[in-house]
Structure formats: C-alpha cells, structure tokens
Simulated assay, not measured.
Amino acid sequence: MSPSLQTFSYRLARPGYSVFPGAHPGEMVGSGQLFKRHESLLASPDPRRIDLRASLLDPFGGYRVRVFQQHSKLNVYAVADLSASMGSAGIQDKRQTLAELVLSIAESARQAGDSFGFIGCGERLDDRDRLPAGAPMPAVRRLTDRLRSQAPQAGSAAMAYAGPLLPTRRSLVFLISDCHFSLGSLPAILQPLSRHAVVPLVLWQAAETAGLPDWGLVRFQDAENRRSRTMLTRPALKQRIADSFTARRQQLRQGFRRFGMEPLFLTGPYRAELLTAYFLGQPL
C-alpha cells in the first residue's frame, strides 16, 4: 500500500447475506460469537454446541443446540459521475479527488476482506469504465490513472442505469457526484439503488461558492455545456449566489433522505477520516 493512500473504517448496522465469512454482521448462521437462536440437534448436528439447560427445558425432550450469527463478506462499489462538471479543475481538481476516493475505497475494502467494484457513468455506460467486484488493486490503479486523464463526457444520464449492474444481494455503494444535474432526475438514479446501503458523496469545489469579488467583471462558465457568460458582480449578486448553493445543498439533502440516504458533502481536499466519522455516526 502506498504511504499516501488513505483508508477509513466502515460498518453496516443491518446484516448482509453472503456465504463467505467476512467482517460484517450476516443473516446466515455458522461460525461466530453472536448468539442467534436455538435449534434441534437434528437441524444443526453439532454436538459441541448442545445447550444442556435449553435441552432440559425442551417440552419434547430433544437436544437443543446453540447457533451463532456468521459475519459475512460484503461487496463494495463506487458508482461515479463522469460528466463534464466532474472534470473541472479549479483550486480542487475533482478528477484528482475522484481518483483518490476510488483508491481509498478500494484499499479500505481490501483491508476489511471485502470485494471492490466500480461503475463509471457518463452520457452512456462504457465497459472501459467498469470493474467487477473483486478487482485487484493494480487494476484499480490503472482505472484511476485513466480517470485522471480522460476527457469528460457530455452528461451523466447513465447513472440512472447503474442499479441493474450491481449484485442482487445488499451491497455498500458509494455514489460519487457533484450533483450538478436536474433534481428531477434524482429519483430515477436512487430508486434502483434503494435495496443497497448507499453513501452519497457530493463533491463541490470551494471556489464554486466562495472567492467572488464584491465588485468586478467575472466570467462564469457552465461546467456541463461549457457555455460562458460575463457578469458584473456586486454584493447583492454575490449573496444571491451563496444563498442558491445553500438552498441546493438543502434540496439535495432532502432528496437523498427521501430514500433513506444521508449525503456527505466534500468541499476540500479528500480526508479519509471524514468517512470514518460518517460511519461512526450514521447507521446503514
């Protein structure tokens, strides 16, 4: 692992379902330390786990065996917006932040014994922007090198089609986007993901909401369609722009919460401890 590669800790409160042992609470019974229930010796033929007290209390006179909850392996996916606005490079380069995020998520999953996969979403889905769950770290690094250098796509319409590409079993999904798309498209993106534990990571540049002069000519450019417009800034306009971002943040938060998802807004350099703190305070 590169010394500069940041990792974080994550957990799921609700159990997952996997036949492979791992680090997360599971729905299957097997090896583990968390008592789940009693079963008959016939249903669970392991005499080492016979509970004598429960057997004596059995009205049918049978032997009762303790079974335990098995911890499970988890699929961890990053679903990323690859639209033009995600390619903007200001004080904070979103492509660099995206690459750091993907590497951090992949390495954190590897350390937890989980499988990592990636789905990149531009105007359409492209097999070159996808990695299956269980991809090795060299493949992840090649992907992130490509994300740093490739030309941004026109839009992010493919985000609405990422859900069917995920496993049917409940997975942990990091949805990475700056959310500079129509709020009307948010339900179409989130509904197919609702069976999974989704962590929306909203990447905003600090320069998008700050740094405007009180007075002066400023050239604004739409990050998606590249159209530009020169405007005379003044204190009232500067405040209106700041208020619009505050309102947008609240609208996005409400939109995600309708689907039981709590977004995390990242506006500075990537810091893995922010994700660790998120999971410590957010049951999923």
Rank of each mutant, 00 (worst) to 15 (best):
M1Y: 01
S2N: 03
P3H: 04
P3N: 08
S9F: 07
A13C: 05
R14S: 11
R14M: 13
R14I: 09
P15V: 12
G16L: 14
S18Y: 00
V19L: 15
P21C: 03
A23Y: 02
G26T: 05
E27R: 11
M28W: 09
M28Q: 08
Q33Y: 10
Q33L: 14
F35S: 06
R37P: 04
R37N: 10
R37M: 12
E39Q: 14
L41P: 02
S44G: 03
P45F: 12
L52A: 11
L52V: 12
A54V: 07
A54M: 02
S55E: 04
L56Y: 02
L57T: 03
D58G: 01
G61S: 07
V65Y: 02
V67S: 12
Q69T: 13
N75K: 11
V76S: 04
A80D: 00
A80V: 09
S83Q: 00
S85K: 09
S85E: 05
K94M: 08
A99H: 01
A99R: 07
E100S: 03
L101V: 09
V102A: 10
I105K: 05
I105W: 03
I105G: 06
E107M: 03
E107S: 04
S108P: 06
F118Y: 06
I119C: 06
I119D: 02
G120R: 06
E123Y: 05
R124A: 13
R124N: 15
D126A: 09
D129K: 04
A133Y: 01
A133I: 02
A133H: 03
G134I: 01
G134V: 00
P136A: 03
M137W: 10
A139F: 01
L147T: 00
S149N: 01
S149R: 06
P152R: 05
Q153V: 12
S156V: 06
S156P: 09
Y161H: 11
Y161E: 09
G163E: 05
P164G: 02
P167N: 06
T168Q: 06
L172K: 06
V173D: 05
L175Q: 15
I176F: 11
C179K: 13
C179D: 14
F181E: 05
S182A: 15
G184C: 11
I189D: 02
L190W: 07
L193F: 02
L193R: 08
L193G: 08
S194E: 13
R195P: 00
R195K: 05
H196W: 04
V199W: 10
V199F: 12
P200C: 11
V202I: 15
V202S: 10
L203G: 07
W204P: 01
W204Q: 08
T209A: 11
A210M: 05
G211Y: 01
L212G: 00
P213Y: 06
P213S: 03
D214L: 08
W215N: 00
L217E: 02
Q221S: 13
E224W: 04
E224A: 13
R227E: 11
R227W: 01
R227M: 05
R227V: 06
R227F: 07
T230Q: 14
D243H: 15
D243M: 13
S244T: 14
F245W: 15
A247R: 14
R248E: 07
R248H: 12
R249M: 11
R249I: 09
Q250P: 07
Q251W: 08
L252W: 14
Q254P: 09
Q254W: 13
R258K: 14
F259W: 15
G268A: 13
A272I: 02
E273D: 15
A277V: 09
Y278Q: 04
L280Q: 11
P283H: 00
P283S: 01
